[in-house]
Design a protein around this nucleic acid. Structure first.
Lengths: 201, 201, 201, 201
DNA sequence: GATGAATGAGTGTTCATTCAT
DNA sequence: CATGAATGAACACTCATTCAT
């Protein structure tokens, strides 16, 4: 990559970062271009030099979780027990959410659909979905995870759960330990995913 | 209640209803006071006769689920098996969400925090929370539900899950059967809540 | 018409008038909503209370020439010689243009199409077109005007000419007597419209 | 002319050409420097190397009709009947307009005044004006054209007419045959220019 | 010569809310 | 009780132009 393109991307990243911080202060609803420009020390025109429009910035924010997963989570998914991998995966997700903060997590959760309806079908292409799906399939093949539900249904269930927690955490302004709570819930849940499990009374 | 107050309340309800329908058409983001006035056949001034401000109207929308629970769900919670009651409870919740439609469900989920931060502490007072809590406690007392987690924690988990599904369903514009999916997930989950369960391999 | 509606229309007219004057000072290109509001002593919101958008105001400006014709020109079209009526008609047109001033005449000429493409087909419905058409037809029926060209073609030619002059006059910032010049030209032109004319050398 | 200057002019011409094509696509109102740069494969900075500002480019566009006249029309003005030469002249004008397309013709017509107020006095110096003036004078000297009006007045009238048609044609998005219509009108008009004509009834 | 990042005043438009009638 | 004219700050976004590299 040329020096120039590199500089461009760096500035983009810089603006995104500033916007993120800002959002954690004022909330998403209150986030305006003018404010982003102010905290970034740029003019409105410059913002539009780097982003086509406001949505563009928003969408950029989503892509970041994929980067995080690829850099920090994927190589930790190395347990022989795929149920454990599910737990590691979920922890990775909420660790990221904790890291980016309450406001951005609200955004990730609540604004996604509004800004990228057409991207919904691409969801299964995204790293987060794909990697969890791989785990489930491996688990089913190894006989660790029940075949009662299709792998896709299970992926959906788990994603819904951790997104639900993320959302709730945002709703409560980050007032509890998201990682711990999610881990508890997901640990509880994966028990019921075991293949051929029998529950004795 | 005086005749006048009664009439007042009736008109309030009327406006809320109109606003609800409207929102299911145009979405929450696109909902304006002017539009609400138009479909309700009132003027802007009149709106502010009945509601202090826009938030006031929004908040009103939330109260309705409690009414629904009291009228339609509570008397169905009569199984001896409290795990079954949990499932009935959750179904009641998502039935309501399905009934009110995608847009309002989005609202219920995503706008709640923004508009009623101060009401969060009152959450445990609300019918939905209180009734689910009762079920869990009874289940624990009967030895049907594990004591590993506190009743409050379990209530939280379950509410997070069904809200998560509700939220996801809205995100996907109501494209799947919310009741069925939620039931599957919650049925799976409650298995792991059984007291003293042991999973054999 | 109710008192209220009357007041509404009066204010609309008031704003249009102010906008017109303004335009004669700053030109059309420089005309902004903000300026219109300033000279009218209203807020931006109020402008949009009376006009849906900027184009709305523009279109309103065009309708005025029809009013002028109905009130001031039509009853002067009473010559037995329809060729004279054509001249009277054209004078009426440019008198109006002179009256409204250079800038608005520029607008009438140059911005019309951009803002009302869909209205072009309705042009033949407008007073100006219709009345001129009537004159030509009467002239042809009386044997005063040639049948060599259809009445519509002749209407088009004449309108093109007087619009052309109007346009030129605006171009030159109203530096000559539009009425006199147009009269000369049109007087010359109508000679060649005479039925069965023979030119001797 | 030095090699360098030549190269400069070539690039100027190149940019003007690209801008012209672009305008026929997007219209004048939608024409931005950025777009011109894009289609020309240059940067904004480079544009300002070759043109002082946007108006500069616009003005350049007008000069072209003179070139066209000198190269394509002047040598066709060789009829003994100067009234015929007027018709040939007018056809040449509208042929050019047809050639350059609707958008540029709109520009030629409507933007000229706004951008070159100071050039108006120079108009009589321009090829188009000068050549038509020569025809009229020759016609008057030959006794073919009336002396009732000064040669300058007649030039003005004719230019106003053909510009009027050009303008109307642009207004209607080039929906009719400009050359044919103009020829009809001008043929009709020149009849009334004949010297000593008498119209018998 | 050429680049393109940066500017910033300006645009049309929105909308919750107020208040005189 | 009800109206709707009026507000005005705020919004996302544009674009001709400049200038350091």
């Amino acid at each position: 990559m040329s020096k120039i393109k590199e500089k461009q991307l760096a500035k983009r990243k810089f603006i995104i970062e500033k916007a993120t911080n800002l959002m954690n202060e004022v909330g998403f609803e209150g986030l305006t271009i003018r404010m982003i420009c102010d905290v970034s020390g740029i003019s409105a025109g410059t913002f539009y030099h780097y982003f086509e429009n406001k949505s563009d910035l928003i969408i950029e924010l989503f892509a970041l979780i994929d980067d995080y997963f690829e850099e920090n989570v994927l190589d930790r998914l190395n347990s022989e027990d795929e149920l454990k991998n599910i737990i590691i995966f979920c922890k990775g997700f909420v660790e990221y959410v904790t890291m980016v903060g309450v406001e951005r997590s609200k955004l990730i959760n609540s604004m996604f659909p509004a800004y990228s309806k057409e991207r919904q079908d691409e969801e299964t292409e995204r790293v987060v979905y794909r990697e969890l799906h791989k785990i489930i399939i491996r688990g089913q093949e190894k006989g660790q995870i029940t075949y009662k539900y299709s792998s896709r249904r299970l992926v959906d269930m788990i994603l819904v759960m951790i997104r639900g927690y993320t959302f709730d955490w945002g709703r409560r302004e980050g007032s509890y330990d998201l990682v711990e709570n999610t881990e508890q819930m997901i640990s509880l849940f994966v028990k019921s995913l075991k293949a051929n499990e029998q529950i004795k009374f």
